[in-house]
Design a protein around this nucleic acid. Structure first.
Length: 226
DNA sequence: CTCTCGATGGACT
DNA sequence: GTCCATCGAGAGA
């Protein structure tokens, strides 16, 4: 925990322009502690969602019950429920009073760390895998061993390359280059990214697109709530 | 490979 | 009532 506290990104990291935070978030380590278990992975795909001037943002139409967290202090989680069955994890940015958030779209397992990581190649799958739901909304991004649930980000060297593309799965402001990925990772939410984003045409001949998804020890099977 | 569509529920007009 | 910052299955090329 002491180690985590030392590496944990300070609030000042988040209290900055959203696009800066988004770009620099690529390569950082996300950790999630819950139910006596800690999991995590390396951030390889994010998207920036700005405030009122970004039509695709939940904050575009001002402060509402759902978007309130985006207008609050930086360095907390913004989690929302979407499509009736998924959750998405964001990191709140900008000084309080100004809205901004960074959507975490994909993680890749740590080479050799604590707990291995099941599929996290997409924002919905990521939350399902890590067990993140609305109960996490508004939580500060910092290590907290004595609470039911905690999540935070730890510093790590930036990737060799960072690619900028358009955001995935949105209609409005779809042309804005607010998506940042580590192009050398094979865990990107690729199928979605290509069909909706249509940003890159580079066709690597080497096996990159497919290949087995990295899966550690899988847990957290299916939920059959009815 | 690409495209289309259903599931499913909350936020917002 | 309409719109989703999704995912995965199914059909067609």
């Amino acid at each position: 925990v002491t180690n985590s506290s030392r590496r944990s990104l300070p609030v000042d990291f988040y209290r900055r322009p959203t696009l800066d935070v988004a770009r620099e978030l690529v390569g950082k380590i996300l950790r999630v502690a819950w139910g006596g278990r800690q999991r995590g992975g390396r951030v390889v795909e994010v998207e920036a969602y700005l405030g009122r001037d970004d039509p695709a943002s939940h904050a575009a139409r001002g402060l509402t019950p759902r978007s309130a967290v985006m207008f609050g202090p930086a360095g907390v989680a913004y989690v929302y429920f979407i499509y009736g069955m998924y959750h998405c994890l964001n990191v709140v940015t900008e000084p309080a009073g100004r809205a901004g958030a960074v959507l975490v779209r994909a993680l890749e397992p740590l080479a050799n760390g604590n707990s291995p990581l099941p599929p996290c190649d997409g924002p919905g799958k990521l939350c399902r895998t890590l067990g993140i739901d609305l109960a996490w909304n508004g939580l500060p991004l910092k290590p907290a061993p004595d609470v039911p649930r905690a999540l935070w980000l730890e510093d790590a060297p930036p990737p060799a390359r960072i690619e900028t593309t358009t955001r995935v799965g949105i209609r409005r402001a779809a042309e804005r280059p607010y998506r940042f990925v580590d192009p050398d990772s094979r865990v990107l939410s690729e199928s979605v990214g290509r069909s909706a984003g249509a940003s890159r045409s580079g066709r690597p001949s080497a096996g990159e697109g497919r290949g087995g998804r990295d899966c550690g020890s899988t847990r957290e099977g299916k939920r059959s709530h009815r």
